Amino acid sequence: MSSRHRSHPSVRAAAAGAVTLAALVLGGCGSQEEDLVDTVPDSAREAVVDRQDDATGVQPVHEGVLDGTFYEQVEAWDGQQVDLTAEVDVLVSPRTFLLVPEPGTEVDPLLVLSPTDVAGLGEGATVRVEGVLGAAFDLPRVEEDTGVDLQDDRYDDFDAEPYLVATSVEVVGEG
């Protein structure tokens, strides 16, 4: 899929930081969380922090709710920073979940890969998620980019669907 957006170095740095961060901390998606965290070199952890510092001030291409307008722009916003507020529909794993679109929106829920466990996260909770949008989930590519085994059977239904690699998740309302 091709997208027609200008790429800025700061956006590329934010995307690279998000993918690297996800690789470091998405270990909770598999059964090897401690092994993955212990094998990440300190230099990689420091690079993530440096990229996050460089990415501050990057304005998201979308700030708002998960609705039809958002989905109409997914391909154009592929690889860019977005800021969404939505309700958690389903917890797929301790660090992956689905956001449900606004009522009356006839689109599928959005898969979110979170960098860390989120205190208070549960089905029905309202969350604010900042992260890098991917237009088409490709399990092998996401696993390669993040370095994490996402247990294929849980993610088969998300093939070619939009997804979000979160850089931060905040619970803003209980469900």
Rank of each mutant, 00 (worst) to 15 (best):
G131K: 05
D35E: 14
E87L: 11
E143I: 04
V172T: 14
P103Y: 10
V25S: 04
T20C: 13
E46T: 04
S7V: 06
D156W: 07
V48L: 02
H62W: 15
T96Y: 02
Q151S: 05
D153F: 13
A160G: 08
E106T: 06
L133W: 00
G147E: 06
V74P: 02
V165S: 09
T167F: 04
L26W: 03
T85M: 12
G79C: 08
A16N: 15
V49E: 11
Q73N: 14
E34V: 09
D38E: 14
R12P: 00
A136S: 15
L110M: 08
V74F: 00
A76I: 04
V49L: 13
A18W: 00
E102K: 05
G122Q: 14
D157F: 03
A18S: 13
A76L: 05
L91N: 01
T85P: 03
A166C: 07
D145P: 00
Y155G: 03
A166F: 09
V88H: 09
P115H: 07
L111F: 10
G28T: 02
L36Y: 12
L26F: 01
Q81D: 10
G68D: 15
D67K: 03
L24Q: 12
E123Q: 13
V58A: 06
R51L: 15
T96D: 06
E174S: 15
A55G: 12
L99S: 01
V92D: 05
D117N: 08
D78P: 01
R95V: 15
V129S: 01
G131D: 08
A44M: 08
G17K: 02
E130V: 10
L133P: 04
D153L: 11
V25A: 04
T69F: 02
D42G: 01
M1C: 07
V172H: 04
D159Q: 15
V37I: 11
E33A: 15
A47H: 03
A15I: 05
R45I: 11
S3K: 13
D67R: 01
V65Q: 11
E72K: 10
V107C: 06
D67I: 06
T56P: 00
L111N: 04
S10E: 07
D67T: 03
V48M: 06
D138R: 07
L164N: 02
S43F: 11
A18E: 06
A18P: 04
T69H: 03
D78H: 13
E170D: 15
A119N: 09
R45V: 14
V169L: 13
A119F: 10
E33F: 10
